[in-house]
């Protein structure tokens, strides 16, 4: 990884939540502990971890909603973890990272879809003509053009998330963090949002971080990072990470079902090549094991 390609660099990152009085309580356990992470521009990374493992804390630190207790965060070369960073610089860097949250109802602000998409760019002071162009493009990208003048609250969950994503796209970020953005969606809504995520990455080169509890979804990324109790424990291609089935179980996680099935078969003495991960690969591996070559 060439230094110039690095978009996010996190070094020795620690974060401890304050107690009610706002003091850094010494006995509180840290949400993140000595975390190192580098993400190259244009990468598609899934982040896994049990509830409370520190995933969302990391997302909030990367988007500068929280300031680290110790350690450094560089976003596109800017050291954003320093308490001395100027407001101007924070605003400049925040434009580079967009976030999509879990509950679609919590992130729509306007009464008409296109106005909702306009909210972000409007606050960036984008000119009217440019803004109209961006809104049109963003709605097209998420397949919501025909709903341009609809009321957001009448849309389905998946459609709302697509509008929320359009609002982010219209700000032209370099990176989008999806914080369990598919958790509330029906299967079709999930498929749509994942597809958009992948198109943004492939077609626009946007760096995508997808925080998720759906293992099949995580397996589609180029890279999977597993965080457990505030520490990074696994980091590699989906095949590498999901080969640690027992370890994932011990952290309260799972592998995609096909992988789980092959793992279970091997445990009861039925030898199946455990290199498979996608459904197709799993079918192939089980088929050859049963047909006995």
């Amino acid at each position: 990884m060439e230094q110039k390609d690095i978009f996010i660099e996190v070094k020795g990152l620690c974060f401890t939540y304050n107690d009610d009085a706002g003091n850094n309580s010494p006995d509180a356990s840290p949400a993140l502990c000595n975390l190192d992470l580098k993400v190259a521009r244009g990468e598609y990374v899934s982040i896994l971890g049990h509830n409370g493992s520190g995933k969302s804390t990391l997302a909030k630190l990367l988007s500068m909603i929280l300031i680290p207790t110790s350690g450094e965060i560089y976003i596109d070369g800017h050291l954003v973890s320093s308490p001395d960073i100027s407001d101007d610089e924070i605003y400049e860097v925040r434009k580079k990272i967009g976030m999509v949250f879990q509950n679609p109802d919590n992130q729509l602000v306007a009464t008409v879809v296109e106005e909702d998409v306009a909210f972000g760019p409007e606050n960036l002071g984008i000119e009217r003509e440019e803004m109209k162009k961006r809104i049109t493009e963003a709605l097209e990208m998420v397949g919501m053009t025909e709903y341009r003048r609809h009321a957001p609250h009448k849309l389905s969950g998946g459609q709302k998330q697509r509008v929320a994503i359009a609002g982010i796209i219209a700000m032209l970020p370099d990176c989008i963090i999806f914080d369990e953005s598919t958790a509330m969606l029906d299967p079709l809504g999930r498929r749509d949002v994942i597809e958009i995520m992948e198109r943004l990455n492939k077609e626009r080169g946007i760096t995508v971080l997808n925080i998720t509890h759906y293992m099949d979804e995580a397996a589609r990324a180029n890279r999977v990072v597993v965080i457990n109790d505030g520490e990074k424990v696994l980091d590699g291609t989906p095949k590498e990470v999901f080969s640690h089935v027992d370890e994932l179980h011990s952290m309260g996680l799972e592998a995609p079902q096909g992988k789980e099935l092959i793992h279970a078969l091997n445990k009861c003495g039925i030898k199946v090549s455990d290199d498979a991960l996608s459904e197709e690969e799993c079918v192939e591996a089980i088929y050859s094991a049963l047909i006995g070559d």
């Binding site: 029906d186 299967p187 079709l188 809504g189 099949d216 995609p256 079902q257 096909g258 099935l261 459904e279 197709e280 799993c282 079918v283 089980i286 088929y287 049963l290 047909i291």
Partner: peptide
Amino acid sequence: IGLDVPSVARIAEKLKSRGI
């Protein structure tokens, strides 16, 4: 109708289409 079946169910179905 916008729903799905579990991933293992699809795997079983594909094995069936290949004769298992």
